[in-house]
Every structure is written in C-alpha cells, then in structure tokens.
Amino acid sequence: MIAGKSVLALITARGGSKGVPGKNILPIAGRPLIQWTIDAARASRYVDRLVLSSDDRAIIEVALSGGCEVPFRRDSALASDEASSIDVVIDALQRLPGYDIVLLLQPTSPLRNTADIDGALDLLAASAAPACVSVRAAEEHPYWTFRLDDAGRLRRYAEPAGGLPLRRQDLPAAWCLNGAIYAARVDWLRHERSFLSAQTVGFAMPAERSLDIDTPDDIERLKSLLEKLPSTSGPEPKVTP
C-alpha cells in the first residue's frame, strides 16, 4: 500500500513465444526469466498482492513454485497475437476487484529491480498523476531520425527549433518506453484503457536495466550484462517528474 492506496502487481506471461520459444521460463543465471520479476516485486514495500496472468501450464507452475500467486488461468482468446496488453490487465482487474493501483510487470524486463518498482510508485503518488511508466534515454534522438517521402527525399520526423541542425550536446532530452514498469490508478485506467496520456509521468531508468528480451540476441546481451554487473540490484534509480 502506498499513500493509503492498495497495489495489485500483475505479471503477464503467455505461452507460445515465437522470437525465443519458452523465454518466460528460460534459465538465466540460475533462475527462470520470470523469477527475476517475481523476486523484485515480492521485495517491494508497496505491493499488496502479486499475481500472474498466463494461459501456459508450465509458466504457471514455475510462477507458483517461485512465490507468485496464480488465482486464475487466462482465457485462450487473451493469449493470442491479436490480444492487447491492456485487455489482459482489464481482465485481471475484473477478476480481482478492490484495488486502487495496478502495476503491470512484464517478465521480459528482468533487470528492473525493486528500487525501480518502488521508485515508480513513489513518483505516481507524489505527482498525483493518473499513471506512471518507465522510460530510458532514446538511443537515436528524434531530431536525427528521418522518413523518406514519395520521391525518396529525407524528411525529419521532428523539426528542431528554427529548423537548424543541433550538436549532440545541444539536444534536449528524449525518452523511450522501456517496457519495464506500467502503473496506473485503477478507476482511471478502466476509463482510458491505456497507461499513456498527456498526464502520464515518466520514471527514468538507466540503459543497463532497460533491456527488453525479445530475440536470442537479447538473451546473449542479458548474459553479457549480468557478467559485468557487480550485483543484480543495481544503483538507485533516477526519478524525473
């Protein structure tokens, strides 16, 4: 609970991954991938209940043995490629009513730690915003990205002030979603059906904890990062209002 509000943490993990088969329970440094998220959430100061939404028996068994509650099995219709994450979250909220804040944690962000989770919830409470999502610094700045028009000519996606080229050190900060943390006030989320809005605040995470597992190359990158980190907890996160 935070600021008098109850918090439901939801881990979403379906079977049938195409990029990395069985990735959610793939052993990483002695733990199944999903266990990294379970452990981080269970150590939170604010999470009142941690549950899994999954259609896959193997994932469910691993989650249960790892200390995550599985009060229901996700319907197959919500485990298809066409199903959206927000549909899965709303389904869980309908099955588990009575919570003020929902926290979506995807197991494909294993380096997100407890301090990140609690930091995002702190920011949500302190800002009085309806939602908070985690972000990382953009690798390619929007001012330096282009599209090609019908004639093959370069057109900027975003124009700098005055339309002038900028040096890297002159660029304003740019952020990308990293997929690690999505938090929102339940009543607002039911109405908006999205974590993103003009009122959503961003919780900044460093690049080394923002890895999102989607391909075999991501698995190798994760293993490489783990070899370099002094610990799995990482430094304290930075908060941006």
Results as ranks from 00 to 15, higher is better:
residue 4 G to A: 09
residue 6 S to P: 09
residue 9 A to C: 04
residue 11 I to E: 06
residue 11 I to Q: 09
residue 21 P to I: 14
residue 23 K to L: 03
residue 23 K to P: 00
residue 24 N to G: 01
residue 24 N to E: 15
residue 25 I to M: 06
residue 26 L to N: 11
residue 26 L to F: 14
residue 29 A to I: 02
residue 33 L to T: 00
residue 35 Q to I: 03
residue 37 T to G: 12
residue 37 T to Y: 05
residue 42 R to L: 13
residue 44 S to H: 10
residue 44 S to R: 07
residue 45 R to G: 10
residue 47 V to P: 08
residue 50 L to T: 09
residue 50 L to I: 07
residue 51 V to G: 03
residue 54 S to H: 06
residue 56 D to M: 02
residue 57 R to V: 10
residue 58 A to M: 02
residue 58 A to H: 13
residue 59 I to K: 01
residue 67 G to H: 01
residue 74 R to Y: 01
residue 75 D to W: 02
residue 76 S to C: 04
residue 80 S to A: 12
residue 80 S to E: 08
residue 82 E to F: 12
residue 84 S to E: 14
residue 86 I to C: 08
residue 87 D to L: 03
residue 90 I to Q: 04
residue 91 D to Q: 12
residue 95 R to E: 09
residue 102 V to F: 03
residue 103 L to K: 05
residue 104 L to V: 04
residue 109 S to I: 02
residue 110 P to G: 12
residue 110 P to W: 01
residue 111 L to I: 13
residue 112 R to P: 02
residue 113 N to S: 14
residue 115 A to W: 11
residue 115 A to V: 04
residue 116 D to N: 15
residue 118 D to P: 02
residue 120 A to N: 01
residue 121 L to W: 10
residue 123 L to H: 11
residue 125 A to L: 02
residue 129 A to T: 07
residue 130 P to R: 09
residue 130 P to Y: 00
residue 131 A to Y: 08
residue 132 C to W: 00
residue 138 A to K: 05
residue 138 A to Q: 03
residue 140 E to M: 04
residue 141 H to C: 04
residue 142 P to A: 00
residue 144 W to V: 05
residue 147 R to Q: 10
residue 148 L to H: 06
residue 148 L to K: 15
residue 148 L to C: 09
residue 150 D to Q: 11
residue 151 A to G: 03
residue 151 A to Q: 13
residue 152 G to M: 06
residue 152 G to F: 06
residue 155 R to M: 15
residue 158 A to T: 14
residue 159 E to H: 08
residue 161 A to P: 14
residue 161 A to T: 13
residue 162 G to N: 08
residue 163 G to D: 06
residue 172 P to L: 11
residue 173 A to L: 15
residue 175 W to T: 09
residue 177 L to Q: 15
residue 177 L to Y: 10
residue 177 L to P: 08
residue 178 N to L: 09
residue 178 N to F: 07
residue 178 N to H: 02
residue 180 A to S: 13
residue 181 I to L: 11
residue 182 Y to W: 05
residue 182 Y to E: 08
residue 186 V to N: 06
residue 186 V to L: 02
residue 187 D to S: 12
residue 187 D to H: 05
residue 188 W to F: 14
residue 188 W to P: 13
residue 189 L to G: 07
residue 191 H to L: 14
residue 192 E to T: 04
residue 195 F to M: 04
residue 198 A to M: 11
residue 199 Q to H: 15
residue 199 Q to F: 01
residue 205 M to C: 04
residue 209 R to D: 04
residue 220 E to W: 07
residue 222 L to A: 10
residue 223 K to R: 15
residue 228 K to H: 11
residue 229 L to A: 14
residue 230 P to F: 10
residue 231 S to T: 12
residue 233 S to C: 03
residue 234 G to K: 00
residue 236 E to S: 15
residue 237 P to Y: 09
residue 237 P to V: 12
